[in-house]
Amino acid sequence: MENYILNVKDLTKNFGRLKALNNLTFNIKYGDFFGLIGPNGAGKSTLLKILYGIVIPDSGFVGIEGLNLKYDYKKIKYNLGIVPQDDNLDEDLSVYENLLIYSMYFGMHRKESMKKSAEILFFFDLEDKKYSKVADLSGGLRRRLMIARALINNPSLIILDEPTSGLDPEYRQNIWGRLKTLNEKGVTILMSTHYMEEAEKLFKNMIILNHGNIVMSGAVNDITLNKKSLEEIFLDIAKN
């Protein structure tokens, strides 16, 4: 268990009659770039929302860095960077203010926040947009800011829910490069996507979900060993 940053055991969630997640069990190792794929409605977002505390599971266990999410969610969040699917940047504030206020939620001091914000703006090539209002940013820049915001607290695990959804290829490549760099620096990443090309390029290990069940799991290379591509596997699963 010590090698795992995330442990999920027998996780179940129902919305009325709909079984969103059905007894999911999987672990993620430290330093992994772990992927989550599956057709629409497979349960990807529900799973991620449980991990970041917006959805409460009906049963099961989630442990992050040895802490129980049910009881220690506030402690856990100090080491978690989260990029939800829906854009929830603070429209009334500038790019820089978004980072500053977010750092304050983590209890960071102003000097530390300013230093970290400057670093992040540089890393994401957002320095020239520092004082721009969020409302004036393009879709791609907003996504970059969402990811930048999730890094403000130096997280050891970043959870991203379809971070490149709806972006043009240039912006997508740009984000891939930055996520790869972060992973190379030792940050564990858990990410969902519906782009198979993205999954093949980025993920080391992954699970494929369908109807709330894990239908395949393992290293990406092992999963694609007997088939032509991840896309074909995905289509086979989606048909069922």
Partner: peptide, 14 residues
């Protein structure tokens, strides 16, 4: 409308 509560809940603020 702006999803600010959800954004805040992604942090240690309850």
């Amino acid at each position: 409308t702006n999803g600010i509560y959800e954004a805040i809940l992604l942090t240690p603020v309850g």
